[in-house]
């Protein structure tokens, strides 16, 4: 352990955000120091609850997180948020834009937001996500939220990291429901039909309740309709998450 890293870990544990931010960068860059850092933090892990939010591009994931964070904060719990967007396969660069929807939380001491690019890893996540979750947990965040990139069927990485997986769909997703059954729907603990201000949300919710039950190994997911943009359904989602957090 270099003195610099010891200083960063000490700073992070004392609540210093720049130290936490720099450690997350080391995790993202897969620094050779990282295993040692994790070993040191191990006794502090296990208290946070990790919520994965996944769903097709534009379903309203970032908007929903913004609203959900307001509810979580009103209960006095602290939050860490990891927002994952895809890297360009051509240049390796990325535009990470999810944060734009969460501006009102920037100055809240109880909220830490970090954007990450996938950097070529599969599964709708970035290679550094697991390590970043550990750092946020060690820094004492009560709830950690991960937004994955818009998923297809094969991108199921979130289920290995999150304690609860929330799948966001929109009324138009109904057309793909047969195809979805085989994939991401199977790993969801909670399904939110967002944009319920549009035609077809109730129908999709009913379809989902009927479709996801047979032959499932996991418990049947709870289905909630919501309008993230109008702050509707967010309390119900919070309660569904909280029930699982308390019951673990």
């Amino acid at each position: 352990m270099t003195p610099e890293i010891a200083r960063l870990v000490g700073g992070m544990l004392a609540g210093d955000k720049p130290s936490l931010a720099r450690l997350i960068s080391l995790a993202e860059d897969d620094s050779p120091h990282f295993p040692e850092i994790l070993e040191m933090l191990r006794p502090r892990l296990g208290k946070s609850y990790c919520v994965g939010i996944t769903g097709p591009p534009g379903a309203g994931k970032s908007t929903l997180i913004d609203r959900l964070v307001a509810v979580i904060r009103s209960r006095g719990l602290s939050v860490g948020i990891i927002l994952v967007d895809p890297s360009s396969p051509v240049s390796g660069g990325a535009v990470l834009g999810d944060r734009v929807r969460m501006q009102r939380h920037y100055l809240d001491e109880g909220v830490f937001i970090r954007s990450m690019a996938t950097r070529g890893s599969q599964g709708g996540l970035s290679g550094g996500v697991q390590a970043a979750v550990s750092l946020l947990a060690a820094s004492g965040r009560d709830i950690i939220i991960i937004e994955t990139v818009g998923v297809g069927q094969t991108e199921l990485g979130i289920s290995g990291i999150a304690d609860v997986v929330v799948l966001l769909l929109v009324p138009e997703s109904g057309d793909d429901i047969q195809a979805m059954k085989a994939g991401i729907v199977e790993i969801a603990d909670i399904i939110v039909v967002n944009k319920a201000d549009r035609e077809g949300a109730e129908r999709l919710a009913e379809q989902l309740k009927a479709a996801v039950a047979p032959g499932r190994t996991k418990a049947v997911p709870q289905v909630i309709t919501a309008q993230a943009i109008n702050d509707i359904g967010i309390e119900a989602l919070y309660r569904a998450i909280e029930k699982r957090r308390k019951g673990r």
Binding site: G92, G93, Y106
Partner: peptide, 28 residues
């Protein structure tokens, strides 16, 4: 910048200096 291989955190508009500063530090 993305096409030049960089990772861009796009923060948008109508922000206060305080908001930008906080985001810059969290994003390292």
């Amino acid at each position: 910048l993305r096409d030049a291989g960089m990772e861009v955190i796009y923060l948008g508009l109508r922000l206060t200096p305080e908001q930008i500063a906080q985001a810059a530090l969290e994003e390292d």
